[in-house]
Amino acid sequence: MLAQRKPGFWNRIYLVEVIRGLSITMKNFLFHKKVTLQFPEQRRDYSTKFRGQHYIKSVNGVENCTACMLCPTVCPAECIHIVAGEREDKEKYPVKFEIDSLRCCFCGMCEEACPKDAIKLSNIYEMSQQNRTVYEKDFLLEQRGNK
């Protein structure tokens, strides 16, 4: 609805209102607290539930993942590619574990689906890249996460 306001005489003169506006901006210029966060030195606190860069949890250098294929199945963006293999002790493990970081939508469904608590989304949000990076298994195993 179009609100009809009747401007008063002093409003129509503009000048008084302009001077008021100028004083408001000057107040902001001089006294108001600046809200800029100086990024590399200061950082914003994110929620612990924040879903950032992926990693695969490992215990004693052995990844938790058993290549059960639940995460590529549940992944809505189809960004996880796993090639399963077998270790000498007949344990199943992922020979290849790739996450296409451009396709991933960071929904966290893989994390929920994982029965072994292997795939995790960390709090890391500085993920800018200069090429179309696919996260390889070695990279994912670097235990950067904090969960």
Binding site: T25, N28, F29, H32, K33, K34, V35, T36, Q38
Partner: peptide, 10 residues
């Protein structure tokens, strides 16, 4: 700089 300070930025 002036526009930033007026808009409460740095």
């Amino acid at each position: 700089r002036g526009s930033a300070l007026i808009q409460n930025r740095l």
